[in-house]
């Protein structure tokens, strides 16, 4: 089933890189991304303040280049802030003149709303109902990324009730649709712990694990993925087949989360699906989609 003329085309976004990659790898990666059919690119470090392989200046350079190549660029901020230096880092991003910011902590929401600047809320800004969403819309939210643990049904209810109660709320909805789900943040670094290193002397050991470290149960079931202070899902979340359902609900953007290999192919696959439909899409039984179907996140409801 192809998309008809009057149906709005689903937009595709590429989330921020969640892992610690080398500087040159990052530049090469975004060179490929620039040539891909993705519409929106989120740039910046959202996990660990110690990872500074790129300065804000470098990220802005990349942002201008991607913008020239026709991408909409958003700068993403850190999720868990502990030190004042981290707050300054976020403030510098929020005060940039040229790009929209994805707020991943209420501090960034505060800075942006105080400046009267429209913003995007990331998946760890807890919006679980229409009243929360609309409170933030009044403060300048122009797009929200749904918290990953919410289901299709809850999203539908939020959007329906939001439209009913606040018909004039203009905002876009983005859903994390492909990749390893960010599930938790801690003060501790679990990658350093896995290597028996203290956090202050971590030697940037997470750089050795470009897609994180898999955690298995004692009977070899993959449970989680360690990524520094972040814990991710053990299975890759994949909602590609849900593209038509999302479009009919009013989702504007599907987010793909970068992996070290194959990301551009995934973008291509999503792009083909938005043009030609999902009838021929194959989904790996190794992936998960439980959250979307109001089940445990690790489940795959296509293979039950």
């Amino acid at each position: 089933m192809a998309v008809s003329e009057n149906e709005k085309m689903m937009k595709l976004s590429l989330g921020p890189i969640l892992y610690f990659w080398e500087r040159s790898t990052i530049f090469d990666f975004y060179e490929q991304v620039a040539r891909s059919p993705v519409d929106i690119v989120y740039l910046g470090e959202t996990v660990c303040a110690k990872r500074r392989q790129l300065s804000l200046h470098d990220w802005l350079d990349l942002a201008y280049k991607l913008k020239e190549r026709g991408k909409q660029v958003v700068l993403s901020t850190l999720t868990l802030l502990e030190a004042e230096s981290e707050l300054s880092q976020v403030r510098r991003i929020c005060e940039n003149d040229d790009f929209t910011v994805e707020a991943n902590d209420m501090s960034a929401v505060y800075m942006l709303s105080e400046q009267g600047v429209p913003f995007v809320s990331g998946p760890f800004i807890n919006i679980y109902n229409a009243r929360s969403l609309n409170t933030l819309v009044k403060l300048g939210l122009q797009r929200w990324v749904m918290p990953v643990e919410l289901s299709r049904q809850t999203l539908d209810e939020i959007l329906t009730s939001s439209k009913k109660d606040f018909p004039d709320s203009p905002f876009e909805t983005e859903v994390f649709s492909f990749g390893y789900l960010p599930l938790a943040f801690s003060a501790r670094c679990f990658t350093a712990r896995a290597h028996n290193l203290p956090k202050d002397d971590c030697r940037f050991i997470c750089g050795q694990h470009v897609d994180g470290m898999p955690v298995q149960s004692q009977e070899d079931e993959t449970v989680f993925t360690l990524n520094g202070i972040q814990t991710q899902s053990g299975q890759c979340y994949n909602l590609l087949q849900q593209l038509p359902a999302m479009r009919s609900m009013g989702v504007d953007i599907m987010r793909i989360s970068p992996q070290s290999a194959g990301t551009v192919d995934i973008i291509q696959e999503f792009h083909m699906a938005r043009l030609n439909g999902v009838d021929h899409v194959e989904v790996s039984p190794e992936s998960c989609n439980g959250y979307w179907f109001h089940r445990a996140g690790m489940e795959n409801c296509y293979f039950k």
Binding site: V148, F185, S186, V223, A296, G297
Partner: peptide
Amino acid sequence: IMAEGRCHLSSYITGESPNM
């Protein structure tokens, strides 16, 4: 040990979490 309010580990495995 996780930042409270930002942990979905429980819902990932069981479908139920502190937030929800």
